[in-house]
Simulated assay, not measured.
Amino acid sequence: MSARRVAVISAGLSTPSSSRMLADRLAVATSAALSVRGADVIVDAIELRDHAHAITDNMITGFARPELEAAINAVVSADAIIAVTPVFSSSYSGLFKSFIDVLDPDSLRGTPVLLGANGGTPRHSLALDYALRPLFAYLHADVVPTGVYASSADWGGVDEGIAPLAERIERAGRELAEAITRREPARMADPFDPDSYLGEGRSFGHLLGGLAGE
């Protein structure tokens, strides 16, 4: 089996970030489950915090800086995506949504996606179902059944909540690995290939700032 590429999107704003910590653990669980199935794994970690200004510029101008274009390439050409956001005001963060908005709406069609979120209280766990799932359903992504929400108590180490979190992470990673193995390997996006995401996936109007959709 050829190597599978997993893009890990983390929308945390702080350093260190609980979102990145959760994203990394989900990536490890997915990689372990894929290794059991005989697949090599390449993980592309994308910290949206590092691209915040470039994402804003892209939304205004319709053009991405080279480093943001590389991040977009990694996401749309991946075999699967792990997407983790902090929960702000009972939903995904503005930075997370802004990055999703600069992707072509068709670029994630059929891509297996594992959703994760973190927040200070367990009360926000439903954001996975009423905010994140509808967003990726609109994009026609293949979202795995288990989403993983981590509250502050889940990171306590000796807290009883840590075991359920570990179990949810393992189950979600296994589900994503199963979804990946059912799917044909993705190929790297080539900006000079008319069949890559810069050709069919992203229309010329989209590259000019979404003019075709206005």
Rank of each mutant, 00 (worst) to 15 (best):
E67I: 06
E69S: 15
I72V: 15
N73R: 09
N73G: 12
A74M: 04
A78K: 01
A78C: 03
D79T: 06
A80F: 07
I81F: 01
I82N: 00
I82L: 06
V84L: 10
V84M: 09
T85F: 12
V87S: 04
V87D: 02
S89F: 12
S89V: 12
S89R: 15
S90N: 13
S91C: 11
Y92A: 14
S93C: 13
S93P: 05
L95H: 06
F96N: 04
K97Y: 07
K97R: 14
F99H: 03
I100N: 02
I100D: 04
I100E: 02
D104Q: 09
D104S: 15
P105A: 06
D106A: 14
D106C: 07
S107A: 15
L108A: 13
L108S: 12
R109P: 00
R109D: 10
G110R: 05
G110A: 13
P112E: 14
P112L: 13
V113Y: 00
V113S: 01
L114T: 04
L115I: 11
G119A: 12
G119P: 02
G120I: 02
T121S: 14
R123A: 10
R123D: 13
L126D: 06
A127K: 01
A127W: 00
L128R: 10
L128E: 02
L128V: 08
L128N: 06
D129E: 15
Y130A: 03
A131C: 14
A131P: 01
P134I: 12
P134D: 13
F136P: 06
A137N: 14
Y138H: 13
L139E: 08
H140I: 07
A141V: 08
A141K: 01
D142G: 03
D142E: 12
V143Q: 08
P145K: 06
T146S: 12
G147F: 03
A150T: 07
A150N: 02
S152I: 09
D154L: 01
W155Q: 02
W155C: 01
D159W: 00
E160K: 14
G161W: 00
L165G: 10
L165E: 05
E167D: 15
E167I: 08
E167C: 09
R168Y: 09
R168M: 11
R168F: 07
R168T: 04
I169N: 00
E170W: 00
R171Y: 03
R171M: 09
A172S: 15
A172N: 07
A172V: 09
G173S: 05
